[in-house]
């Protein structure tokens, strides 16, 4: 057992961890941020994607102790109290959400993609979400949503953009 601190969604958090704990377990079991999902536990599906120091990581492949002192963003950190993030809004508007299990990871991968490349082509979007599997949508509507979200973000993220 060891106590670590880290920043999660802009807040200073600390938690007791043990050596076998993954970042995924730390977020879900210790911090109760269950929006981060486990689909495979072996780095294949991307359902557990979170943002660590500005980059996407599979939180099932990162040990909890590796997150010490790091800045983490999970899906719970995307919307403000009364406003969805433009990416989340675009996912809803474009019908990109079905069962929803891949969606937290998809939204976070989309965020990092658009942070780095504000006007991606459809191929670049596909590349950007290539680590995230979706069994429901067939991906096209997710690509549509990310394209739409890029538009919103480039015009200031206004809801009527």
């Amino acid at each position: 057992m060891k106590e670590i601190s880290l920043r999660v969604n802009g807040e200073e958090r600390s938690a007791e961890i043990h050596e076998e704990m993954r970042l995924l377990d730390l977020l879900r079991d210790a911090l109760h941020l269950t929006g981060t999902k486990e689909g495979c536990g072996e780095g294949e599906c991307g359902a557990c994607t979170v943002i660590m120091e500005g980059k996407t990581v599979n939180s099932c492949m990162v040990m909890a102790f590796q997150a010490e002192g790091k800045e983490i963003i999970t899906i719970e950190g995307m919307a403000t109290k009364d406003k969805l993030h433009p990416i989340q809004r675009a996912f809803l508007e474009k019908g990109a959400v079905q069962c929803g299990f891949c969606i937290p990871g998809m939204v976070l991968s989309a965020k990092v993609l658009l942070d780095e490349n504000p006007i991606p082509t459809r191929d670049e979007i596909r590349e950007g979400i290539s680590g995230n599997l979706c069994r429901c949508t067939g991906y096209n509507k997710i690509v549509d949503a990310i394209e739409t979200a890029a538009g919103y973000l480039n015009t200031g993220g206004d809801s009527n953009a």
Partner: peptide, 24 residues
């Protein structure tokens, strides 16, 4: 009409509970 699905907002924000998300 294109309607927003009722469970959509919970799913894009991570609030939707799948059985593994339940703790007691």
């Amino acid at each position: 009409k294109a309607e927003i699905r009722v469970d959509g907002p919970a799913k894009v924000t991570g609030r939707a509970s799948y059985p593994q998300d339940l703790y007691m």
